[in-house]
Design a protein around this nucleic acid. Structure first.
Length: 208
DNA sequence: GCAATGATAGGCT
DNA sequence: GCCTATCATTGCC
């Protein structure tokens, strides 16, 4: 058994996106562009559950140029632009024809910290490096051009490095910034690692 | 330290 | 023309 095992298609094609989002806490997220390796341990995720979830871009079966990638078989990247500025990175999960995805909200930096600091334009290493979905993509050099990237490839991937996270170390709570979704905004589909300083700060606009 | 505000572009009606 | 799965900056309200 290898110590560093890239997550395979089987991990992403499972049917329960909420389980996958929880399982991703403690896994490792990397990018490698032009030989520059950057990434770290996933400490915060959110699940978006296809056509039945009012917070999901594919709600009610919506199919647009933007959302079509969500209907692919699990194991590809869904990257979209939010507020005209930030790229948000998601993993498409489940079978072809479903539209589930997991948003990566925060990581603990492990590899290529100096390169990530430069990409973020920070003077020092602090939570602002990777504690937020728009910050993780900046730190890893990911943008909307990476929409559709296969996670089985060599540019963007996830690894299991044997980190075992006890269930009681994972916090479940409502997702961030989805107040428009009505009752679905209350679903406890945001997961984070208890006690990690690298989890994004709660948005005071949406108190829990 | 904190709340209020502005940036900025594409999806959608 | 409005809204957005956000974050940096401003100003102390």
């Amino acid at each position: 058994m290898r110590l560093q095992q890239k997550l395979s298609s089987d991990f992403y094609t499972r049917p329960d996106v909420v389980t996958i989002a929880r399982d991703l806490i403690g896994k490792y997220f990397f990018s490698s562009f032009d030989g520059v390796l950057t990434g770290g341990m996933v400490v915060e995720t959110e699940a978006y559950s296809g056509t039945s979830d009012a917070a999901c871009h594919a709600h009610l079966g919506r199919r647009t140029k933007r959302t079509q990638i969500m209907y692919e078989q699990g194991g590809v990247a869904y990257v979209y632009l939010i507020y005209g500025i930030y790229s948000l990175f998601n993993i498409v999960t489940n079978a072809e024809g479903t539209a589930d995805a997991v948003l990566i909200r925060a990581i603990e930096p492990i590899e290529g910290i100096e390169e990530m600091r430069l990409r973020r334009g920070l003077a020092k290493v602090e939570p602002r490096l990777t504690a937020g979905p728009g910050l993780v993509t900046q730190a890893l050099g990911i943008s909307t051009q990476h929409n559709g990237t296969q996670l089985s490839g060599s540019e963007i991937w996830f690894e299991d490095r044997g980190m075992l996270v006890p269930e009681d170390q994972i916090i479940a709570g409502p997702r961030v910034g989805v107040a428009y979704a009505g009752a679905d905004a209350l679903l406890p589909w945001r997961f984070s690692l208890k006690g990690s300083r690298w989890v994004s700060k709660a948005n005071p606009k949406y108190p829990q």
